[in-house]
C-alpha cells in the first residue's frame, strides 16, 4: 500500500484563490457561475489586486456575489451596477472596480447604464454572465433568450412577433468609442474556460492602465431553468448559444496589445 508523501514533499497544484471567500454558494449544481467566480478570483490574485479590488454585485443570481469574493463589495439596484461602479471609480481611480452582472441586469433593465458607462470610457470592467434566462426569479424570458426558447414567460417559445429579438451586447458596446476591450467568451469547455480567464485578466489590466471601458461576456449555463442536465446544458451552449452569440474579440484598441 502506498503511503502519502511527507508534507514537505507535497506540491500545491490547485487551491482556492485568495480572492474567493471560503464559503458555500447558493448556485445550483452544474451552473457555470462557480467557474466564472473562480476565474475572476484567479485574475485578482494573479494581478495582486486583492487589497485594491471592489466588486459591485448586481440583481439576479449573482446578487450574493458580494459574499463570495474576499474583497470589498457592494450590492447595486437592478441594472444600476455600472452607474454605481462609475461613482466608486471616479473617487477611487487607483482601485480595481468591476461589476458582475447577468443578462437581465445588464441587457434589459440596465441598458442605459451599461451603454453610457462604455460611452464615457469609464475605466471599470463588467463581467457579463449571459445565460439567456432570468435565473433568480425562476426562469423567465431574458432579453438574450433565443428565438423559440421556452421559458416560464414564453411558454410557447420566444416569439419574435411578440417579444422581438435578442440583444447581442458585445456587438452593441463595441460600437462605442469609449470601449477599450469588449470580448465574448464561453464557459462550456476547458479550452474556452482558459480563454475566458485570459480575457478577464486582460480586462482588469485594461482598467488599471486607464485605457477605457472593458467587458467580458461569458456564455453560461442555467441547467435548472433550462430543464437540462449539467452536461446537456454545456452542449446547448456550444450548439445553440454560440451560433447566435459568436465568440470573439469585438473591440480591442491598439493600446491593449501593448499591455
Amino acid at each position: 500500500m502506498m503511503r502519502d508523501a511527507p508534507i514537505s514533499d507535497r506540491v500545491v497544484v490547485y487551491e482556492r484563490p485568495q480572492a474567493l471567500a471560503d464559503i458555500h454558494t447558493h448556485y445550483c449544481p452544474g451552473c457555470t457561475h462557480g467557474i466564472s467566480h473562480r476565474l475572476v478570483a484567479e485574475a485578482i490574485d494573479e494581478l495582486g489586486l486583492n487589497d485594491r479590488a471592489i466588486i459591485v454585485a448586481s440583481v439576479g443570481c449573482s446578487v450574493f456575489s458580494y459574499n463570495y469574493f474576499d474583497i470589498d463589495a457592494c450590492e447595486a439596484a437592478h441594472g444600476r451596477a455600472p452607474a454605481m461602479a462609475t461613482g466608486l471609480k471616479r473617487v477611487s481611480p487607483d482601485r480595481l472596480v468591476f461589476t458582475y452582472q447577468g443578462d437581465g441586469d445588464l441587457a434589459s433593465i440596465g441598458t442605459a447604464e451599461i451603454i453610457h458607462a462604455a460611452a464615457r470610457g469609464e475605466p471599470v470592467t463588467a463581467v457579463f454572465v449571459n445565460n439567456a434566462i432570468y435565473g433568480m426569479t425562476g426562469g423567465q424570458m431574458a432579453p438574450t433568450s433565443l428565438p423559440g426558447q421556452k421559458t416560464t414567460s414564453s411558454p410557447f417559445g420566444r416569439s419574435t412577433d411578440i417579444a422581438g429579438f435578442p440583444i447581442r451586447m458585445s456587438e452593441v458596446l463595441a460600437e462605442l468609442d469609449g470601449s477599450a476591450y469588449i470580448v465574448r467568451r464561453s464557459l462550456h469547455n476547458v479550452k474556452e474556460i482558459r480563454r475566458a480567464k485570459k480575457a478577464i485578466k486582460t480586462a482588469f489590466k485594461v482598467q488599471m492602465a486607464g485605457l477605457g471601458f472593458s467587458m467580458v461576456e461569458l456564455l453560461s449555463t442555467c441547467p435548472t431553468n433550462w430543464g437540462m442536465s449539467a452536461s446537456d446544458a454545456l452542449t446547448w451552449v456550444a450548439d445553440t448559444m454560440v451560433p447566435y452569440y459568436p465568440l470573439g474579440d469585438y473591440r480591442v484598441i491598439d493600446a491593449v496589445k501593448d499591455l
Partner: peptide
C-alpha cells in the same frame, strides 16, 4: 436614475 446610483457608489467610498 444613473446620477443617484453614481452618488450611491461614491458615497460607498
Amino acid at each position: 436614475v444613473a446620477a443617484i446610483n453614481m452618488v450611491y457608489g461614491a458615497a460607498c467610498a
